[in-house]
Design a protein around this nucleic acid. Structure first.
Length: 492
RNA sequence: GGCCCCGUCGUCUAGUCAGGCCUAGGACACCAGGUUUUCAUCCUGGCGACGGGGGUUCAAAUCCCCCCGGGGUCACCA
C-alpha cells in the first residue's frame, strides 16, 4: 500500500439524502476507515437554483445518524477548504482559463437553439446526438475577437483521438473509444462551470485518490479521465457501485417509494440496521453472516468485493433486520429510542417518560419481541393507557374468552383469590406458578382461566405474558380491570 | 436507437478471476412441525436458482461463441 486513501462523498443539496447515496457514503467511509485514510465531504451545490442550506443540513444530519463521521467537510473545514463547490468558483475559472489557453478546450459560439435543433435532426435521422464540432477548428484569433466583441460562448473540452482506459475496482479495466465521447461543455454561456468539470478540479485539488460512486456515473468517467490528463494530473482509482433498484427492477427514484433516508428514520428503523442492510446491497461479509457491526464492516470492506449487478431492494428483509436489531440491543437504548414515538402518540409526556423511565423500559421489554420498529411500540402498549372500566376489547379476544363457559364466574373466583396477592412489586414468577395451581385445583384447563383473563387485562388476543401485564398495570388497576371485565362479561 | 454494463432460489447473496471440494451454501419471504397461557420470539424440517443454445474439456455455475432478458447513459442537471 502506498499513501492512505483519500475518498469523498459529494452530495448535491437539491433534495434529501437518498438511501442509495447513503450506501455510497457508507462504502466510501468504510474504505477510508479501514485503511487509515481520510473521508471528506464536499457539497456539490453548483445548481444554485435547486440547492438549499436546509437540504445540506439534512444530509449531514442523516450521515451522522448512520454513525458516519468525516475528517474534512463544509462544517469542519480542512486543509483544502472550502468544501462547498459554489465557493470554489474562482479556482474553477482559473483552471478553465488555463485549459483554454493551452488549447485543451475551445470556445463554442453555437447557440443552444442551434444545438437543440441539431440534436433533433440527428435523432430524427437515426444518428446519435452529439456536437458536430463546428467551432472546434476556429482559429484562435477569430475566437478571441468574437469573444471580445461580446458574442456569447460556452467552453467545450477538446476530446482527443484514441480511447480512454481506466481502472475500476468493481468492473476491472474499462475502456471507452473517444469517438463516443462528445466534446462536452465545461463552462456554460453564463460563465458557470458544469459538473464534469468541477468534480475533477475539486477531486484533484482535494487530492482524492479513490472515487467510489454510483454506476450511473460510469459514462462520465472517460470525460473526467481525459480532463485529469489535460490538466497534467494523476488519475485516481475508480469504483462504480451497482445501483440500488426498486421492486420494479429500475433505479430507485423518489417516485417509487421510500427512498429518502429520513423516511426510515421517521419510521423508527434502528440506524444500525439501516447500515447493515445497505451494506448487504451489493456486498457480503462472507457466505453466511447477515448481521454484522459497523466495526466488522470497516475491518472487511473493500470495493473490490462489491458485486457488479444491481440489487432490488427488499423491504421485508429490511423490516426483519430492523427487528433483529431491536431485539438484541440493550433495553436501555431501545427504550430511549422508543420514547419519542410514545410521546408523539400522545401516550406520555416528555416529563412522564423521564419520571417513569423504568416503567417504560418494562413496557418495552414486554413488547420488543413483537415489534420491528421503534414506531410500532405505541400501538402495542396503548392498552396500558386506556381507562380501566372501558378497555377496548378486540373481537378475537372476546371470542377466545367466550369459548369458556362461565368465564365471568371463573374470573370472579380467581380475583377473590388473587386480590391479596396483588402487590407491588409483583413476584411474577411465583404468581404465575400459583395461578396455574389455582386453575388445577378448580379443575380448570389453563386456557379457561387465561383467555378470559387476557381479554379483561389487555383486550387483545395476543400479547405478552400477563403477569408482566399485571406488573405493568399495578395492583389497583389490575383489580379494576378484572372487576370491570366480570361486569361486562356478565352483562353480555 | 448508439455506447456501456449486468444476468445463481420470488428477493439479498456465497461460489465465477486460479474448471473438479457445488447431487450449488446462507438469509428474507412462504409452507409444515415443535416450544409457549395467547401472539411473537426461538428451534427443526420443507419449498426453491446457475436465463437459453452451442462449443472446449475426462470434468463447466465457473472458459469461449451466439441468442434472449434486464439495467445505465446519451443536458449549457448533478
Amino acid at each position: 500500500m502506498t499513501q492512505p486513501p483519500r475518498v469523498r462523498f459529494a452530495p448535491s443539496p437539491t433534495g434529501s439524502l437518498h438511501i442509495g447515496g447513503a450506501r455510497t457514503a457508507l462504502f466510501n467511509w468504510a474504505w477510508a476507515r479501514r485503511n487509515g485514510g481520510t473521508f471528506l465531504l464536499r457539497v456539490e451545490d453548483t445548481d444554485r437554483e435547486r440547492s438549499t442550506q436546509a437540504f445540506e443540513d439534512a444530509i449531514l444530519d442523516g450521515l451522522k445518524w448512520l454513525g458516519i463521521d468525516w475528517d474534512e467537510g463544509p462544517d469542519l473545514g480542512g486543509p483544502f477548504a472550502p468544501y462547498r463547490q459554489s465557493e470554489r468558483l474562482e479556482r474553477h475559472r482559473e483552471l478553465a482559463a488555463k485549459l483554454l489557453e493551452e488549447g485543451a478546450s475551445y470556445r463554442c459560439f453555437c447557440s443552444s437553439e442551434r444545438i437543440t435543433k441539431l440534436r433533433d435532426e440527428q435523432r430524427a435521422s437515426g444518428q446519435n446526438p452529439a456536437y458536430d464540432k463546428t467551432c472546434r477548428g476556429l482559429e484562435r484569433a477569430v475566437s478571441e475577437a468574437r469573444a471580445a466583441a461580446g458574442e456569447p460562448f460556452v467552453q467545450r473540452f477538446r476530446v482527443p483521438e484514441g480511447s480512454t482506459t481506466f481502472a475500476d475496482d468493481v468492473r476491472g479495466t474499462v475502456t471507452f473509444p473517444n469517438a463516443d465521447v462528445d466534446d462536452w461543455i465545461m463552462v456554460r454561456a453564463d460563465d458557470t462551470p458544469t459538473y464534469n468539470f468541477v468534480v475533477v478540479c475539486d477531486d484533484a485539488d482535494m487530492q482524492v485518490t479513490h472515487v467510489l460512486r454510483g454506476d450511473d456515473h460510469l459514462t462520465n468517467t472517460p470525460k473526467q479521465v481525459l480532463l485529469y490528463r489535460a490538466l497534467g494530473l494523476e488519475v485516481p482509482g475508480f469504483a462504480h457501485l451497482p445501483l440500488m433498484l426498486g421492486k420494479d427492477g429500475k433505479k430507485l427514484s423518489k417516485r417509487t417509494g421510500d427512498t429518502a433516508l429520513q423516511d426510515y428514520r421517521d419510521k423508527g428503523y434502528p440506524p444500525e440496521a439501516v447500515v447493515n442492510f445497505l451494506c448487504l446491497q451489493g456486498w457480503a461479509l462472507d457466505d453466511h453472516t447477515e448481521i454484522f457491526s459497523t466495526d466488522e464492516l470497516v475491518a472487511n470492506f473493500s470495493p473490490k468485493d462489491v458485486g457488479k449487478s444491481g440489487a432490488s431492494f427488499d423491504p421485508e428483509k429490511f423490516l426483519w433486520m430492523a427487528g433483529e436489531y431491536l431485539r438484541n440491543d440493550s433495553l436501555e437504548r431501545v427504550t430511549h429510542r422508543c420514547a419519542p414515538f410514545v410521546v408523539a402518540a400522545g401516550l406520555m409526556t416528555v416529563a412522564e417518560v423521564e419520571e417513569r423511565k423504568d416503567w417504560l423500559a418494562e413496557a418495552v421489554a414486554s413488547e420488543r419481541e413483537r415489534i420491528h420498529l421503534y414506531s410500532e411500540l405505541p400501538a402495542r402498549i396503548a392498552y396500558l393507557f386506556e381507562d380501566d372500566a372501558e378497555l377496548t376489547w378486540q373481537d378475537a379476544a372476546l371470542k377466545n374468552a367466550n369459548k369458556h363457559a362461565g368465564a365471568a364466574d371463573t374470573l370472579a373466583s380467581y380475583l377473590a383469590w388473587l386480590r391479596p396477592r396483588l402487590v407491588a412489586p409483583l413476584d411474577k414468577d411465583a404468581l404465575r406458578v400459583s395461578s396455574r395451581e389455582w386453575a388445577a385445583e378448580h379443575s380448570l384447563k389453563i386456557p379457561a382461566l387465561f383467555q378470559p383473563l387476557r381479554l379483561v387485562l389487555t383486550g387483545a388476543a395476543g400479547g405478552p405474558d400477563f403477569f408482566d401485564v399485571m406488573s405493568l398495570l399495578g395492583p389497583e388497576r389490575c383489580a379494576a380491570r378484572i372487576e370491570a371485565g366480570i361486569a361486562r362479561l356478565g352483562a353480555g
